[in-house]
Design a protein around this nucleic acid. Structure first.
Ligand code: DUT
Ligand code: MG
Length: 855
DNA sequence: AGACAGTCTAA
DNA sequence: TTAGAC
DNA sequence: GTCT
């Protein structure tokens, strides 16, 4: 997800209030921050009515292809059956080329790909390359170099292992030193209190400390630090300190100190309360801890851990600058600077379905198909369930909903329609199957003592016309351009989302990040502008801290804390580094602590895993969003290959594409096949497909492949890697643009589609691609999972959990036993996995079309 | 003080 | 086990 | 950060 996430608003308030149906929705939507682009719905082409659209999105790939194809070729029309595309295939295949067939690619894929690439890309490429944008830019290396380098480095750590001085005694066991940059204890001499390594736990600790650069001494006087086992006190230490040593010069800490240091790969502040050894006397207190500071960093951790204290009372606001909110907005823009690449946005359209959403009913074709076969039906009985489950539904709805509403327009020609709408529903009221789940209205609660005002619903009717909805879209779309949102708290909501964005970059601050999103979501439900602490804190999911910030924002138009975060160079760096595929908050933090400040620093100094190297080599490409049409083209390519292998497989493009996004961060494809339940077959198919696509040059690298564990296992069904769209498969004939986005030059010679080589300057953009193999019986659950968005998934899974169930990518289970920490003890019994609708129904959630799942 | 989704792979 | 990703 |  990356930056885009911003939009996700909070949600998660699952249980709790339920207001009646949302029947009317409102929708207003706030716009959220920029980030997210698009989601608009189908822009032109894809269109079709909403209904159709949904079906469209859901439609099995082959259909997609058909649809897509027209683009490639010309105008659409037709519904698709499947065969069609084969023709075109040949053409492509011939283009393909000769990459030697490697046997199983999984293992070798990477190599192969590199090879290929190396040969081909020799020149620097144009492409976005925002590297520069980021920080200092240095000479940028050529792609080929990078690749080569990667290869070279390819083998995992090896090199290093400097011997380093081993402490006085102790020699035998060769200690494997960590990379030099991580040697947080370099230069320090540790004396462990029970002065012996007899105890295995302690010995481990000692060895580990040495691996991180410490020298172990058994003679107190050489020590810079005295590491005391937990449970011991100064009194125990006393005898030792008596001699000639000057206790005042030694740093005395408990065993947690070294552990935290190596965990963070940095020397943390030893004077924190948690490292103190009990029994310290006044005289001992005043140590000036000398030695310490050795390396560059130090700071951070301490601060981080101690942070909490919320002192700020509303009083401190003062500053008033006059311009309010706009400022915040400006800043955000600013931070967007880094790699940029935000794609296009577009307009969208949507449809209202809202409460009546039950309508469409058929969301996924497959389901429909099966229904027919089996005679199932899934619709939601409008009335019956509603009443009860509504509370939950509402919640989900709140999260998501509101987004789309208006529908309108555009219908697209051709295709699509066909399959979906089936008038069938009608009956079915019978619960298909037993199910039952109970559902009781949990209603409840709500209460929240004193506070709670809950005004909910926006009154905004906002929408109505396009603009309203536009704004609503903003929420998902990103851009902050419009502003208009009718929501009186729009700016405040944006502010909270910006806070979340900042925390997203910071080292493990995900819960704080989510808390801000939830707060934003809560504010979104308010119909009146919230201006004071009192008003704010009365709202669920907005506590003291957020309430203070809200008031500060209302009064001054800005919030110090946010500005501090936005201006914090370290936070900016975190954003820069974590955008490298494979790099998260932990590593970004460590790098920053080690003094790295630019991507070039990372290229030169950091030691990277294979995936991180790829992420860095293709930093800009992988951070460039994919226009919807290209997603379709990529999908079409995969479909062609898949069907060449097995004509009966079905592919469905999921992820943000299925939700109607007009640009996606990557392409997510679900691959299934009617009678397939055994993973074995699927896996063989997958390997074959991957091999084929790799040989064609479409797939460029494997980032993570299923672990073909024991036969039969249920997992091992996901393949992640990178791909490239052959030049001649770029959409655009029908008017829509074309490649130039990446081509930059393309001097007339277009041709060889292929990715790699080409000396004509054409260079394909690497894209992330995820393939998910799904047995037919798990398709519904897999669709929910792969369609997302992530927030929607977490929300609905949390809801399931609260109802004693468990929802994962394979199905919905009941009677799940959980132990401490909600850790699953028993898997529970499978309730449903095949149909999305049934799963929703069991959870008491109204059906939501994919495009309604943006939260 | 614990939860905040649930699962999988790489290292 | 931890980090990162979906 | 917020709720339980
Ligand atoms: O933490 C996560 C991330 C993703 N997903 C699911 C939902 C998501 O829709 C799908 C695909 O993930 P991806 O990262 O591709 O997100 P997306 O929704 O497709 O957005 P993008 O446009 O960034 O690809 O996997 C989760 O369940 N949890
Ligand atoms: Mg995606």
């Amino acid at each position: 997800m990356e930056p885009a996430l911003g939009d996700k608003v909070a949600f998660f308030q699952e249980l709790k209030a339920f207001q009646t149906e949302d029947g009317n929705e409102d929708t207003w939507t706030t716009k959220d921050s920029h980030r997210n682009a698009a989601k608009t719905f189908m822009k032109a082409a894809a269109g079709a009515t909403t209904n159709s659209m949904s079906s469209d999105l859901a439609r099995p790939v082959n259909q997609v292809v058909a649809a897509t194809k027209p683009f490639l070729v010309s105008t659409p029309k037709r519904t698709a059956s499947d065969p069609v595309q084969t023709t075109k295939n040949s053409e492509i295949s011939r283009i393909i080329k000769s990459t030697p067939p490697n046997s199983h690619l999984v293992p070798h894929l990477r190599e192969t790909a590199s090879e290929v690439i190396d040969l081909s890309t020799i020149t620097d490429t144009p492409i976005p390359d925002s590297t520069k944008a980021s920080s200092k830019q240095q000479p940028q290396r050529r792609v080929s170099d990078r690749l080569l380098r990667r290869r070279a480095t390819g083998s995992p750590s090896v090199q290093e292992t400097p011997s380093f001085k081993m402490p006085k005694r102790k020699k035998d066991v060769p200690i494997k030193m960590v990379p030099e940059a991580d040697r947080c204890f370099a230069g320090l001499v540790f004396f462990f209190f029970p002065n012996s390594d007899a105890n295995s736990v302690r010995k481990k600790r000692i060895d580990k400390a040495r691996e991180y650069g410490a020298t172990w001494t058994r003679s107190l006087k050489d020590a810079t630090h005295i590491i005391v086992d937990k449970g011991l006190t100064y009194a125990d230490l006393k005898p030792l300190l008596e001699g000639d040593v000057d206790p005042a010069k030694k740093i005395v800490v408990n065993a947690d100190f070294p552990i935290d240091c190596w965990t963070h790969r940095t020397l943390v502040s030893h004077d924190q309360e948690k490292y103190q050894v009990p029994g310290k006397t006044a005289s001992q207190q005043s140590n000036a801890h000398p030695a310490v500071a050795s390396q560059s960093s130090d700071q951070s951790l301490v601060l981080k851990e101690r942070r909490s204290k919320r002192s700020r009372t509303s009083s401190q606001i003062t500053t008033r600058s006059g311009n309010l909110a706009s400022q915040a907005a400006a800043q955000s823009t600013e931070h967007a600077v880094i790699p940029s690449t935000q794609p296009v946005a577009a307009s969208l359209r949507s449809r209202a379905n809202s409460s009546s959403s039950t309508t469409s009913e058929e969301g996924n074709p497959v389901d429909n198909v099966r229904k027919d076969q089996e005679g199932f039906r899934s619709r939601m009985p409008p009335p019956d369930m509603d009443s009860e489950k509504s509370s939950f539904e509402d919640e989900l709805s709140q999260c998501i909903g509101h987004i789309m509403e208006f529908g309108n327009d555009v219908v697209i020609p051709g295709e699509e329609e066909d399959q979906s709408p089936q008038p069938e529903d009608t009956e079915e009221s019978k619960r298909p199957e037993d199910i039952d789940d109970d559902d009781e209205p949990h209603r409840s609660e709500d209460e929240r003592p004193a506070k709670k005002t809950r005004t909910s619903r926006t009154g905004a009717s906002a929408a109505k016309g396009s603009e309203g909805w536009q704004s609503s879209f903003a929420c998902m779309q990103g851009g902050l351009k419009g502003v208009e949102s009718e929501n009186p708290n729009a700016e405040t909501i944006n502010f909270l989302l910006e806070m979340a964005d900042e925390y997203e970059k910071k080292g493990d601050e995900r819960f704080r990040r989510d808390a801000f999103r939830k707060a934003a979501g809560a504010l979104k439900q308010q119909s009146v502008k919230i201006l004071t602490f009192a008003e704010a804190i009365a709202i669920d999911n907005i506590g003291k801290s957020s309430a203070e910030k809200i008031e500060e924002f209302a009064r001054t138009g800005r919030v110090k804390k946010l500005q501090n975060l936005q201006n914090d160079p370290m936070v900016k760096l975190q954003g820069l580094f974590t955008k490298i595929y494979g790099v998260g908050p932990s590593l970004a933090d460590r790098w920053i602590r080690q003094g790295y400040r630019t991507l070039d620093d990372i290229r030169e100094k950091a030691h990277l895993t294979a995936n991180q190297q790829i992420g860095l080599d293709h930093y800009d490409e992988l951070n460039t969003r994919i226009p919807r049409k290209e997603v379709e083209a990529l999908g079409a390519h995969v479909v062609r290959a898949a069907r060449a292998i097995d004509r009966d497989v079905q592919l469905i493009i999921g992820g943000s594409y299925r939700r109607g996004a007009d640009s996606s961060g990557d392409i997510d494809i679900i691959i299934t096949r009617q009678g397939m339940s055994s993973t074995g077959q699927l896996i063989d198919f997958l390997d074959e497909l991957v091999l084929k696509l790799t040989n064609e040059g479409f797939l460029t690298v494997a980032l993570a492949a299923h672990r073909k564990s024991h036969v039969d296992d249920t997992d091992g069904n996901k393949w992640q890697g990178c791909c490239v769209l052959p030049k001649d498969e770029y959409p655009g004939d029908d008017g829509s643009e074309v490649d130039d986005a990446n081509t930059s030059d393309n001097d007339g010679s277009h041709e060889r589609p292929n990715n790699k080589s080409n000396k004509d300057g054409w260079r394909p953009i690497w894209r992330r691609i995820d393939l998910l193999l799904v047995p037919a019986s798990q398709l519904g659950a897999a669709l929910i999972y792969f369609t997302g968005n992530d927030i929607f998934n977490r929300s609905i899974r949390l809801l399931a959990q609260k109802k004693g169930m468990r929802l994962n990518q394979r199905g919905l289970y009941r009677d799940v036993l959980r132990g401490k920490g909600n850790v699953k003890i028993a898997e529970g019994e499978l309730i449903e996995g095949e149909y999305e609708r049934k799963i929703f129904r069991h959870l008491g959630v109204h059906w939501r079309e994919p495009h309604e799942r943006w939260c």
